[in-house]
Structure formats: structure tokens, C-alpha cells
Design a protein around this nucleic acid. Structure first.
Length: 613
DNA sequence: CTAGGGTTAG
């Protein structure tokens, strides 16, 4: 036995890791074969498992080795099931599961755990249920990891009910399966139940804390996510890489660059590894908080990049108006041998759209099916309509919608409507809004756009008609809200908000801004017919859009060389857009606004969106 | 030295 142990630790096997090449594996294999060691099931098992666990890129090779092996160990077969469960071909797990029986072995709790996870990936009707049945027959339903896998599987299959049934059937809840149930509940928006589980866990480990933080972030409870992370540190729980991903995601949602920077510094100070996932979350955070330079710095600093990493960076560039750079990155990605997916193409098309590259956009759109076998989805069609529309090719945009092989969705008509607003086209605009409102009768934005198209074309009866319809249908909207961060503290302003403790100073500053802007020729949007995106309380002189209040506050509290960063929950309106441009020139300040659509970088009187809104 | 938690779009 002792000799077996030393064989199992054969130095060449210990050397295998993710950088090992196929050639090197062949050499190790030949070496083991020549020395006769490979006949030992333990050694071949170790060899196969080492490849499976530490060098998944060479999984095909270890699969062939294992297939030729007379007496594979359960350990090596389990390892193969495990790698395939996380691969794009989870069905291959079953090949090794079947081999377990044929070799006269019996599956253990590890086998079923990995197999269940393979089913969660596979998502073929009935397969998960039959594996569930098989593991019950083998008596593994009381294993906490198997239970956790089952809950996770049913969550993936879309049935919170089944998760609850599994969970309810367990007498003694282990932390592992409680954590799985916590994640499943959060995934389906039942954050209250997730909290309840978290609160009554007898022992909360890092994984449980991470799951709860991620649950908050997924449900859009960003503040709660950040609060819980701070609590986690106070409790002295060990923080690791997966802890930071939802923390960054919360910063991304809030648009709070200072907090995001703090999280980045925390990662470095605690020497957390810059894994693919963590790096991608960091790039996304910087991109969506408006610091695209920093996002690219992180991007280029990464050792490896997958399709998520590339797509995040490309999406960031597109959102920030850097369409050319987005397309350059796309060619580099392909050169790097990374295969684009459907999400990548959303970024590519948006990149083309923001700089008006109609031809390139069409070329890339066609390449989706021709070269990559990716079926365009609604988002891609929406991007194409936006591409044609923004460039002023309204008829082509309309034809494109009419030729769509699937039923056009509200987003496609919305993109066309938006283009009609930019290019002041009333006829197509009416058609687009009618179609859009058939699909989304309560879409506030559609009414506003249509009304403004009428107003700009001086069709007053059109304007009043829209208003009547809106009222009769009870269309509601979110109140506009803008957020500014000063010294890591988040300040929130609503439309016409006078509740801030510094409101008196803000009021004085607003007066000063308007006085100076008027001297430079700014005409406040006084057209009483032009429909305001946040029209309510317009008659109140102090009722200003939240981004104007936020700008005044930023001018007071932020140093001159620091850009004023504003995050808005709605789309910025034309008047505020003009206002921002003029403030950026008159006060010589950079202003960066993230609205719910994209970024606007105001500098020296111009905007990065080139007034394409 | 096999089991849990995390990322892009909408």
C-alpha cells in the first residue's frame, strides 16, 4: 500500500496544470507507459483525474486515455463527470456514468452530485428527474451536497416549486443546502425567504455570506448588498474572490465610481486573485461608472480573457460612444481566437450604431448567421433598426422591421420612434408609436416621443390627443432621480427636490448658473407644448429636473478638476442635454451623465453623443 | 487534495 501511495504522487502527474500542452501530456503518458506504471489503476486514475481537474483544455485527451483503460477508478470517472458537467457538452457526463456500472463499480455521492450538476446545465426535460430518481434508489438523498445540487438543478430548470419540494423534504438542513435554497429564492425574487434562511443559519461561512450578498445584488438591492459586505468584514468572515463580484455589481448598478474604486483597492490590498469573472466584473463596473480609460487598463492588464471579458469591454466602449474602438476590439478578439456569442453582437451593433457605421453594422449582422451560426434575436433586430434609424435611413429601418422573420417587439418600434424624433419624421413616427403602444400600452416614453414629434411639426391637435389618451389610460412613470457621489457619499435628488440639507446653497447656485447661461445665449425650454419627459409640476419654477439640481450640487461640492458624474434613472431630456453642454463650457467643467440608455460626456460645450442622444 | 457562492445583453 505504501508503494501505491508514492506511485500516486508521481512527480510528472503533479506537474500537470492548465498550462500543460497536449504534447507534454503525451510525453508523460509515454513515460508512464514505458515504466509499466500505467497498468496500476491508481496511477492511470490519477493521471486522468489530474488532466480533468487541472487542465480541462485537454479533456478530450484524458477521455481517450480513460476509454482505453481496463480498470478505471471511480475517482477518475467521477472527475470526468465533473469536468463535463461544467462544459458546453454536459451530456458527455452520462458516458462516464454508464461506464461506472460496466466496470462493476457503484456510483457514490460524488458521482450523483456531479451528474445532477450536469443535468442543470443540460436542461433536457425528464433527465434531471430520472437522475433524481436514481440517486434516491442509491440512497444518497440525504447527502447535503447532493441536495444542494438538486436545488440548484431545479432552480435552473425554472421551478422554484420543485426547489421548495426538495428543501421541504429534508429533515436536517445542512448549511450547504440552506445556501443553495437561499440562492434559488433570491434568483426568483423571494429575497424575504432568502433573508430568513440566512438569519437562522447556525453557522454562516464565506459561501453563505457571498450567496446572500449576490442575492441582494441580483434583486437590485444594491445598498443592501454593500451593507452586508461591510457587515461581513465586521464579523471577521474571510472574504474571497466570489465575494467581490456582487459587490462590484452593486457599485455598477448604483453608478458610484468612488465605491467601485474602493472595492478595487480592497481587492488589491487583500491580494485577491484577478480571476476572469472578477476582472470582468471590474471592467463592467468602470465602464458603467463612466471611467472607460480605467476599464481598458484593467482589460489589458488581464492575463486571459474570455467572451465575457471581451464583450464587457466592447459594450462599455459602445455605451461611451467609442464605436470605432469597439469594432477594433472586436477584430482583436477574433484574432485572439475567442468565439463571439449573441451578447457580443449586441455590443458590436451598438458600436456601429453610435458612430453611424451603417455598412459595417449590416456586414456584422449578416456574419452572425453566415459565419457563426448565431440566430439573431429581438435585441439584434432592435439594434439594426436603431442603426438605420439614427443614420436617418428611416425607410430602410421601417422595411427592416417589416422583413423581420419574427414578430417585431416594442423595442424595435421604439428604436424607430426614437429615430423619428431625432429626424423629425411625423408620418413614420405616428406609425411606430401606434405599433409600439399596441404592444406596450403603458409605455410613458412612447407617448412623450410621439407628442414631441407632433409639437415639432406644429400639430397641436396631435399633442392634445396624445395627452388625452395618456390620461385615459392612466399611464404612470417613474419619478426622475439623479445621483451624485461626493467623497464616497451618495447624494440623491428627485424632480423638483428641495429636501437636501444644502438646498439653499443649491438654489443660489442654480440662480447663478441660469444667469450665466442666459448671458451665453441659453434659452430655457419654455415651449409650453413641447412635452417634457418629466412634465409634472412644470408650472412650479423651482421644479427642475433632477440632473440640473445634481449639477448645481456637483459644482458646489466637487473640486474643479474632478468631473461631475451623474447617474440618472430615466433618459436625459433635450433641454437638460443643452443645459449640460452649456454648463460644461461656461463653467469649464466636465460632466458625465449615465442615463438609462447610455453615457453623455459633456466637455467644452459638446457632448460625446454628438447630439445623437 | 473530487462536492457550494461569482461575470457580458435585456
Amino acid at each position: 500500500m505504501s508503494s501505491l501511495k508514492s506511485i500516486a504522487k508521481h512527480p510528472s502527474i503533479c506537474l500537470i496544470d492548465s498550462s500543460t500542452t497536449l504534447r507534454e501530456l503525451r510525453q508523460i503518458h509515454a513515460h508512464l507507459l514505458l515504466s509499466g506504471l500505467l497498468n496500476e489503476p491508481q496511477v492511470s486514475g490519477q493521471f486522468v483525474a489530474a488532466i480533468a481537474l487541472r487542465s480541462p483544455g485537454n479533456i478530450e485527451y484524458s477521455s481517450r486515455v480513460l476509454d482505453r483503460c481496463e480498470n478505471p477508478t471511480l475517482f477518475s470517472l467521477n472527475s470526468m463527470i465533473r469536468v463535463h458537467s461544467k462544459s458546453p457538452t454536459p451530456q458527455k457526463s452520462f458516458h462516464f456514468y454508464n461506464r461506472i456500472r460496466r466496470c462493476g463499480l457503484s456510483p457514490d455521492n460524488y458521482t450523483f452530485n456531479f451528474l445532477v450538476r450536469a443535468c442543470a446545465q443540460l436542461l433536457v426535460r425528464g433527465v434531471g428527474e430520472s437522475v433524481h430518481g436514481a440517486l434516491m434508489r442509491h440512497g444518497f438523498e440525504s447527502d447535503p451536497h447532493v441536495q444542494s445540487g438538486l436545488i440548484n438543478m431545479y432552480a435552473e430548470m425554472g421551478s422554484l416549486e420543485s426547489c421548495r419540494r426538495v428543501f421541504g423534504g429534508i429533515l436536517d438542513h445542512d448549511v450547504v443546502c440552506q445556501t443553495a435554497m437561499l440562492s434559488a429564492s433570491a434568483k426568483y425574487g423571494d429575497i424575504a425567504f432568502a433573508e430568513q434562511l440566512f438569519d437562522k443559519m447556525p453557522k454562516r461561512d464565506t459561501v453563505a455570506w457571498n450567496a446572500m450578498i449576490a442575492g441582494y445584488a441580483q434583486c437590485g438591492e444594491s445598498r443592501q448588498a454593500l451593507n452586508l459586505f461591510h457587515e461581513m468584514q465586521l464579523e471577521g468572515v474571510k472574504v474571497n474572490e466570489p465575494s467581490m463580484v456582487p459587490v462590484l455589481s452593486a457599485c455598477t448598478q448604483l453608478g458610484t465610481l468612488d465605491q467601485g474604486r474602493w472595492a478595487h483597492a480592497y481587492i488589491e490590498k487583500n491580494r485577491l486573485r484577478m480571476t476572469l469573472t472578477l476582472g470582468t466584473a471590474l471592467i463592467d463596473m468602470y465602464a458603467k461608472c463612466g471611467d472607460m480609460d480605467k476599464a481598458m487598463e484593467v482589460f489589458w492588464g488581464m492575463k486571459e480573457r474570455n467572451v465575457y471579458t471581451w464583450s464587457s469591454a466592447m459594450n462599455g466602449l459602445a455605451m461611451n460612444g467609442a464605436g470605432k474602438e469597439c469594432l477594433e476590439l472586436f477584430s482583436l478578439m477574433k484574432k485572439d481566437g475567442v468565439l463571439p456569442n449573441e451578447v457580443t453582437f449586441v455590443s458590436v451593433l451598438r458600436g456601429c450604431s453610435v458612430v453611424g457605421l451603417v455598412e459595417d453594422g449590416y456586414k456584422h449582422f449578416a456574419s452572425m448567421t453566415d459565419m457563426y451560426g448565431i440566430q439573431p434575436e429581438l435585441e439584434h433586430y432592435g439594434c439594426m433598426v436603431d442603426l438605420y434609424g439614427r443614420a436617418g435611413h428611416l425607410n430602410e429601418a421601417l422595411n427592416f422591421i417589416n422583413d423581420m422573420p419574427v414578430e417585431p417587439h416594442a423595442g424595435a418600434w421604439g428604436a424607430l420612434l426614437n429615430a423619428c424624433k431625432i429626424h423629425k419624421n411625423m408620418e413614420i413616427g405616428e406609425l411606430a408609436s401606434r405599433k409600439m403602444l399596441e404592444l406596450e400600452a403603458k409605455s410613458h416614453g412612447a407617448y412623450v416621443l410621439l407628442s414631441n414629434i407632433y409639437a415639432e411639426n406644429k400639430s397641436w391637435e396631435g399633442v392634445s390627443h396624445v395627452r388625452r389618451v395618456m390620461k385615459s389610460r392612466g399611464v404612470k412613470k417613474l419619478p426622475g432621480c439623479s445621483v451624485v457621489e461626493v467623497d464616497g457619499e451618495v447624494h440623491e435628488f428627485f424632480v423638483g427636490d428641495n429636501s437636501h440639507q444644502m438646498y439653499n446653497e443649491i438654489k443660489v447656485m442654480l440662480g447663478e448658473i441660469f444667469r450665466r447661461l442666459r448671458l451665453s445665449g441659453y434659452m430655457a425650454n419654455t415651449n409650453p407644448v413641447l412635452f417634457d419627459i418629466e412634465e409634472e409640476e412644470k408650472e412650479n419654477a423651482l421644479s427642475l429636473h433632477s440632473e440640473k439640481i445634481a449639477t448645481a450640487f456637483g459644482l458646489i461640492r466637487l473640486k474643479k478638476d474632478v468631473p461631475i458624474r451623474i447617474v440618472k434613472n430615466l433618459r436625459i431630456c433635450w433641454d437638460c442635454h443643452d443645459f449640460m453642454k452649456m454648463v460644461s463650457r461656461t463653467f469649464d467643467r466636465d460632466i458625465i451623465v449615465r442615463d438609462n440608455n447610455r453615457f453623455h460626456h459633456f466637455k467644452g460645450g459638446a457632448c460625446s453623443c454628438r447630439d445623437y442622444w
